[in-house]
Amino acid sequence: MHYIEVQKKDFNVGYEYQQLVKDNSSDGAVVFFVGRMREFNQGQKVSALTLEHYPGMTEKLLAKIEAEAQERWPLEDSLIIHRYGRMEPGEQIVLVVTASAHRKAAFEACEFLIDWLKTKAPFWKSEETAEGTKWVEAKASDDQAADKWSEK
């Protein structure tokens, strides 16, 4: 199963795990990555963030990234859930799940998916701080993390 969801509402990690392992005895390794909202960014307190996206392109891009992961690793199952809208510190933003017969493929594919998602999927964050609301700038370190997967 390879699944993508772009949604406003929160997700339940335990529920997603139960769904994944139900009637499934082939995935020997399951890796979960959860991206959460931090209360500090670059030394500044952030009271909330709002994620905007490009409906249509987002789903297409995520499906493309997922297909790329399937080509590179023997992935039995994968799941990406990305939220949009307003979120407060501690809330979950994104879930990436990868499952394979063995852990190496699951670990690597999960890291690949979040690294590519961060630099390719059309999402934009704006943060609410004491000084007002400002758009988050893209980080060079995220580009470098994504680039390390480009050579295959």
């Binding site: 991206g35 994620l51 996206h53 490009y54 392109m57 990305h82 933003i93 994104v94 979040i114 998602l117 961060k118 630099t119 390719k120 999927a121 059309p122 999402f123 934009w124 964050k125 758009w135 988050v136 700038e137 893209a138 980080k139 995220d142």
Partner: peptide, 10 residues
Amino acid sequence: VAFFPPVTGG
């Protein structure tokens, strides 16, 4: 056609 700044999701 869409124009937008560098993405910052995840």
